[in-house]
Design a protein around this nucleic acid. Structure first.
Length: 260
DNA sequence: CATGCGTCACGGAG
DNA sequence: TCTCCGTGACGCAT
């Protein structure tokens, strides 16, 4: 059933380079005899991306073969919202979003987009697998994922920040890319508009098949990001953004909300 | 209850 | 083909 016999962390890294020392696998309750330390023997080579108030980590999490298989499975498994469910109002006009979206997560979590609240579906096996791979690689746990599918280079997402109101500020947003490589643009909020208050160069990244991008604090507070149209891209990309939604509720598991 | 803030995608210009 | 800019009704926080 599970073709991934070794951890994705180990499989994606044949070089044996040392990784980011900040990224540590959390040792949870483990058998004394468990060979968990094997997981540390081949850490991911992280690439640090830094600018003013920007702090990201980028790495190839999955091998090409693994990423191909995961993409194929997600294409079968993921159930996207309908066009009607994700329609947004922009400057007085209703628009279809130029991509498809789905949300999965722990029971009861909600996704809000332009005022519409939609319940996250329960995790699928493939999404759980990828979620756990990201946890192994980063030491962070996640209770929610937003899936964006860009069918080709015409599909895109406009500049925005992820809504932080219900995100755990101690947990980075983890973005896994599968399928076509797409440019990812970051712009500082003070460098936007007609009369920018500051001159800060935009940061452009190419998000590869099987890659993982971590957006650490305070990046998302100060920087907008987008996946702009790329007319020459002819094949689909699936992006998974894993988050930790704060569910602190003394009275029990009432619905919490995720926003994007 | 009132007020203010931030948002989302398209289409046209250069 | 890419990038920048102008376009506002609405949800939500205070």
């Amino acid at each position: 059933m599970d073709p991934f016999v070794t951890s994705p962390c180990k499989r994606a890294n044949a070089t044996g380079e040392s990784g980011n020392p900040r990224k540590r696998i959390k040792l949870e309750e483990e058998d004394e005899e468990s060979p968990i330390m094997a997981e540390f023997s081949n850490p991911i080579p992280w690439q640090k991306i830094e600018a003013e108030e920007l702090d990201c980590d980028y790495a190839l999490l999955f091998s090409k073969q693994q990423a191909d298989e995961l993409f194929k499975r997600l294409e079968k498994e993921v159930e996207y919202f309908t066009e009607e469910e994700t329609r947004v109002l922009v400057f007085g006009k209703l628009h279809r979003i130029p991509r498809k979206q789905a949300t999965y997560g722990d029971s009861g979590l909600m996704y809000s987009f332009s005022g519409v609240h939609l319940l996250a579906r329960p995790w699928t096996p493939t999404l759980e697998y990828i979620r756990d791979a990201v946890t192994d690689a980063t030491g962070n746990t996640f209770n929610f994922v937003l899936v964006n599918r860009y069918k080709d280079g015409h599909d895109h997402i406009c500049e925005h920040r992820d809504d932080e109101r219900e995100l755990d500020p101690t947990c980075p947003i983890a973005s896994v890319s599968l399928g076509a490589a797409r440019d990812f643009m970051l712009r500082h909020r003070d460098s936007r508009g007609q009369q920018p208050q500051r001159r800060i160069k935009p940061v452009k990244l190419l998000l590869a098949h099987g890659s993982l991008l971590l957006m650490n604090q305070p990046t998302n507070t100060h920087w907008y990001h987008s996946v702009p149209p790329r007319k020459r891209v002819l094949t689909p990309r699936i992006n998974l953004t894993f988050r930790r939604i704060v569910t602190e509720n003394v009275l029990g598991p009432a619905p919490a909300r995720a926003r994007s």
